[in-house]
Design a protein around this nucleic acid. Structure first.
Length: 289
DNA sequence: GCGGGTGTTCACGC
DNA sequence: CGCGTGAACACCCG
């Protein structure tokens, strides 16, 4: 699910729904999600009685700041979901398909239930259980690479960070979370299509104008995706269970064999790189100019 | 029954 | 140390 835009959509949903709420109870149904059996008691204890004072996001990480000196950190990985349901149980907008993962929580893939004092609930679902939650001291949050959508993002610093990896492809460099935070397979593919860059070109061979183009296109792409509520290409849903619609605006991702959206473009191709699928237009994104 | 999948980390070999 | 590959995590879907 979750690349930067999707996580931001979740963050915005949470800001609307849970700010100021007090945590009354925490039910950990699957200890792995909080780091194993030995972490359950501490996890629950550090949340109980606290209120949510702020919701932040950096890259794909969510930070729910608490009224204590701690922060609940969440990573949704591939299939994690946060679903908020009001006291009256209404407002859930998923459940339109017949699929297992599209029903109102709690269900078999609900691993953590956070109950608020007003009777509402926040559910952490994760089909594949790769996602995690943990509570850390707020002044000890993990250090992460720059996030293109935040105000302190610096294009020249971003370019330097990419260029630190001259021997890997631009595709891989952009997926590297130590280079830039938040990009995943969908948005790297989309970004390179927008910039007309062949995904497998090595960073060392990438013309300066192409790196500049990436630096300039990255933020508008992500903001556009956020505007449409993210891409529900797989299991992503907003906190009310509804889907994002940027999926309808994707140019190459999951469009193998379909015509390129540029009028002089070719047919979208798919190539395996390090075990994952890279989508691109062989006409627009040629190996060399 | 098999392969594929949005993310990250680790072991291994070069 | 850098880089690629494959595996691991776990489950549903086509």
């Amino acid at each position: 699910m979750p690349e930067l835009p999707e996580v931001e959509v979740v963050a915005r949903g949470l800001r609307e729904k849970i700010l100021g709420k007090f945590i009354k109870n925490v039910d950990v149904k699957h200890p792995k999600v909080v780091g194993g059996e030995s972490h359950v008691a501490g996890f629950v204890k550090s949340l109980n009685g606290a209120s949510i004072t702020k919701v932040e996001r950096h890259g794909k990480l969510l930070f729910l700041k608490l009224s204590t000196k701690h922060t609940l950190v969440v990573h949704l990985k591939l299939t994690g979901q946060l679903i908020f349901i009001d006291k009256d149980g209404k407002g859930y907008k998923g459940g339109h398909t017949q699929k297992v993962y599209d029903t109102a929580p709690p269900h078999k893939h609900t691993h953590i239930i956070i109950s608020f004092s007003d009777g509402s609930h926040l559910y952490f679902n994760d089909l594949r259980r790769f996602g995690w939650m943990k509570v850390v001291a707020t002044n000890d949050l993990p250090k992460v690479a720059p996030d293109p959508t935040l105000s302190d993002f610096d294009k020249s610093d971003f370019i330097k960070r990419v260029q630190k990896h001259p021997k890997i492809s631009v595709y891989k460099a952009l997926l590297d979370q130590t280079v830039v935070s938040g990009m995943g397979n969908i948005y790297v593919n989309e970004l390179l299509w927008r910039c007309k860059i062949y995904p497998l070109i090595l960073v060392s061979k990438l013309p300066r104008k192409n790196i500049d183009a990436i630096a300039n296109a990255i933020k508008p792409l992500l903001l556009e995706a956020i505007k449409y509520g993210g891409s529900s290409a797989n299991t992503f849903v907003k906190i009310d269970g509804s889907k994002g619609t940027f999926t309808d605006h994707l140019d190459v991702y999951h469009r193998e064999g379909k015509p390129c959206h540029r009028k002089d473009g070719g047919t979208v191709a798919r190539v395996k790189v390090g075990g994952r699928s890279t989508f691109f237009c062989p006409m627009c994104q040629k190996k060399a100019d």
